[in-house]
Amino acid sequence: MGEVNCEGRSTQEINAEIKQQIKKGATEILVRNPGARHNLGVAILERVTIRLDGSVGYYCGGLIDGPNFEIAGSAGWGLAESMMNGQVVVRGSAGNGAAAAIRGGTVVIQQDAAARLGVSMKGGTVLVAGNCGYMAGFMGQKGTIIVCGNAGEAFADSMYETVCFVGGRISELGTDAVVEQPSGSDAEFLDSTLAHHLPPDLRKSKPAGRDFKKIVSGRKLWNFDKREWKTWQEAL
């Protein structure tokens, strides 16, 4: 396993070292003492596992395509933003805009996610074991958001085809968000996804798949229509 120690080094030096080790054939890299630095592991495009043994700052795993990230601590804003493929697991919590605009892959946050989780998602899956903040799923285009705990206000606002599941309470649905009865296959999907991505002890404390609420777009904002003017007034 390769190793990179962040102490005393700039982000540019750390990322260059990570990429150098990947070039040399490393398939697993331990990044020690990340110290909540921003932009760690940005634009990694290879199938490699990168373990960070602490907390990370903004945009960790941003613009990646393929790697697995395991973050022992918490993450700042824009975790894995615009990811195309791969997996990013955070043992702690994540800041604003986690998984924003991702096109594929999986983001797992084992504690809580702040505001704007999965904003403008275009694919992929985001799983939050805890709660999420304001405006999660805003303008979600595709992909799946799973929140095992409670969801904040304006949840799933102005979505296209992203599908959301919430195990706890929803403070307030966003504009054009509607609650739909989950199907049997939805419950199976949730059970298998949670079992696959959460440690067994953590999984045990979360609701069963059949107990999640399903939230989708009401599609009233998809096209301008004067009959929906009240919805538009709220949306605009």
Binding site: A43, G57, W77, G78, A101
Partner: peptide, 20 residues
């Protein structure tokens, strides 16, 4: 979706530099 003001944009610009 992932930054709001100029302080965040400093880090965003650095991210784009890292990516390129």
């Amino acid at each position: 979706p992932d930054f709001l003001g100029p302080d965040d944009m400093i880090i965003k610009i650095e991210e784009l530099r890292e990516a390129t």
